[in-house]
Design a protein around this nucleic acid. Structure first.
Lengths: 191, 191
DNA sequence: CATGAGTTTCAGTAAGTTCTGAAACTAGTG
DNA sequence: CACTAGTTTCAGAACTTACTGAAACTCATG
């Protein structure tokens, strides 16, 4: 692997991270390489740079395509496939989150929903079911909310995130203004 | 494994999920079991119910403790350790997120920051560095924002999430009200 | 301070996954 | 329609991780 040192560190790090997140090392490395590359790369170029087998790269690219994380392109007069990572990091993050949702969260929600339809056999079962209901509620809330966030325009989102804990103040502000709306009222307490 | 069917499905499912998220299967199962249990369990009880070796359970519990995901308790006159999952699902989620932050995100940010200090050797290097900067920015924004959210009281949070995309309207509302400032005001549209 | 209930550690093994090279396949080109 | 560049598949090898049973350790108690 004779990459520029900067890139090399990045690629190796994402290889490690990949394994920790249930994505295999090579796949992480391929993605890291595509992410920093200034132009699309074909499978052979990736093979050379990462020093792994051609077939390993082929499988890794297939995996990345199934995650919709790479874009395919072609050069005139060259029928090899060239791969690249989307430019927009926020877009990448959204795609990743969407796929994870589809593959892991949705089946989990579905399992929990099924479990909640069963009639509990005894007190312990009833307790277990109540716990599952709580978990279902949390996951559903988080994912519904995130689904809405994904729809926001990047600028709006940035504004919202820049707000941070300021959101609390904003809520408070809204309450106060609306309450005044109808009659004269005193502002609420500290958060 | 002779658990009530409801619990069994839940435990097995979280075993699978564990593997997909880089946590081993047994650890996932132990946690699922503790999560739905109506009282704290000791290591032997867990061993019996999951049908895995005693030492495997011992290691799994150690792992869960290192993630701060289980609470330890004791019964009078019994010196065995009893384990349980916290009651509050939101708390559990926060703990999980905090540990992941500490173990994976922080080192990644640090690596990216280091990479940004290097002087790029050529145009490709410069591009790679710019990409890393973008990634750094996104991750930092997301985590800063989430760190603030974690500090919110659960009710406030729920209010905020219930708002969902309505947050956009709220921002808009704030702008309009503030611009009108001193003079006559009209409350915004439906939240 | 010996006993024994409870817990942890560890070396070896089982199970699972990732990776490889070779072979098979696909589809433009002469 | 044979040739060739490119890509995919696959069986087994290499590696990694998870799991086990046995031994070592810990510590309250008689």
């Amino acid at each position: 692997m004779d990459l520029p040192p900067l890139t090399q560190g990045f690629v190796l790090h994402f290889g490690e991270m990949g394994s920790r997140w249930g994505i295999n090392r090579t796949v992480g490395q391929i993605y890291a390489l595509l992410f920093v590359s200034s132009r699309p790369l074909n499978a052979d170029e990736i093979t050379d740079r990462l020093q792994v087998s051609r077939s390993n790269v082929s499988m890794g690219l297939k995996e990345l395509q199934s995650w919709r994380l790479v874009r395919l392109s072609h050069l005139p007069g060259d029928r090899r496939d060239y791969y690249s990572a989307p430019d927009d990091v926020w877009q990448i993050f959204k795609t990743l989150a969407e796929e994870r949702q589809r593959r892991e969260i949705d089946p989990t929600l579905s399992m929990l929903r099924d479990a909640m339809l069963e009639s509990p056999g005894n007190a312990d079962d009833r307790h277990a079911q109540e716990r599952m209901r709580q978990m279902h509620e949390l996951i559903e809330q988080l994912t519904d909310w995130f689904a809405e966030v994904r729809r926001l325009a990047p600028e709006t989102l940035e504004q919202l995130m820049g707000l941070g804990a300021g959101a609390v103040k904003l809520l408070d502000f809204k309450d106060r203004v609306l309450r005044r709306g109808a009659r004269g009222q005193e502002p609420g307490g500290t958060p």
